[in-house]
Simulated assay, not measured.
Amino acid sequence: MIVRLQITVRYVETDAMGVVHHSAYVPWLEAARVEWLNRMGVPYTEVERQGLAFAVVELGLTYRHPARFGDQVEVETWLEEVSSRALRYRYRVWKEANLLAEGFTRHLCQEASGKAQRIPTDLLNRLKAHSQ
């Protein structure tokens, strides 16, 4: 399942050169990931109600072209890998037909104390059913 989330670049996300600062992409990826879970039928709030979190343990981004204030961009995301304790999402950020950035995040399932935790079987099966 691939989800595409539309985002309008805000002025606060730009730097002195007038382009989107590299750090602004990280919240966009998070928003797309949360939307992916929503569309899968598992709001992140449901994960948290189970006393779990998917902590980001690795992130990689390659920037190809700049975005600017007011641009309409689209963040495309999908779940690439699922294991008993971890998830790996992939992302592409587009402005029309131009690929602006691409990358990934890896997440470890943790309980409230921060200890690694197996993903509950029912949730794991739902995630696997929607992974690429």
Rank of each mutant, 00 (worst) to 15 (best):
M1V: 02
M1D: 00
I2G: 02
R4W: 08
R4D: 11
T8N: 10
T8S: 12
V9M: 08
T14V: 03
T14M: 10
T14L: 08
A16I: 10
M17K: 03
G18D: 09
V20S: 03
H21R: 08
H21S: 13
H22A: 05
H22I: 03
A24Y: 05
A24W: 06
Y25V: 04
Y25W: 09
V26G: 02
V26P: 00
V26D: 02
L29K: 01
L29N: 01
E30V: 00
E30K: 03
A31P: 00
A31M: 09
A32V: 06
R33C: 06
R33E: 12
V34E: 09
V34T: 14
V34P: 01
E35D: 12
W36C: 01
N38H: 14
R39V: 03
R39I: 05
M40T: 10
P43S: 08
P43T: 08
T45E: 13
E46P: 00
V47G: 02
E48R: 13
R49N: 13
Q50I: 00
Q50V: 04
G51M: 10
G51H: 11
G51I: 11
A53S: 15
A55E: 11
A55R: 13
A55L: 15
A55W: 11
V56R: 05
V57M: 11
V57R: 13
V57S: 01
L59V: 12
G60Y: 10
L61I: 14
L61H: 04
Y63W: 06
Y63I: 04
Y63R: 04
H65Y: 12
P66G: 06
A67R: 01
A67N: 05
A67T: 01
F69S: 01
V73N: 02
E74L: 06
E74W: 12
V75K: 00
V75A: 04
V75T: 05
E76N: 07
E81K: 14
V82Y: 07
S83L: 03
S84A: 15
R85M: 15
A86L: 01
A86K: 15
A86G: 12
L87H: 00
L87K: 03
R88N: 04
R88I: 02
Y89N: 00
Y89C: 02
R90D: 02
Y91L: 04
Y91P: 03
V93M: 04
W94Y: 13
K95M: 09
E96S: 14
A97M: 08
N98W: 07
N98C: 03
L99H: 08
L99D: 07
L100R: 02
A101N: 06
E102M: 06
G103E: 06
G103S: 11
F104D: 01
T105D: 04
C109S: 14
Q110M: 15
Q110E: 12
A112Y: 05
K115D: 10
K115Y: 07
K115V: 14
A116V: 14
Q117H: 15
R118Y: 09
I119L: 13
I119Q: 11
P120M: 08
P120C: 10
T121S: 15
T121I: 11
D122I: 01
L123I: 13
L124E: 12
N125R: 13
L127W: 05
K128D: 06
H130S: 09
H130L: 10
S131M: 15
S131E: 11
S131C: 14
Q132W: 09
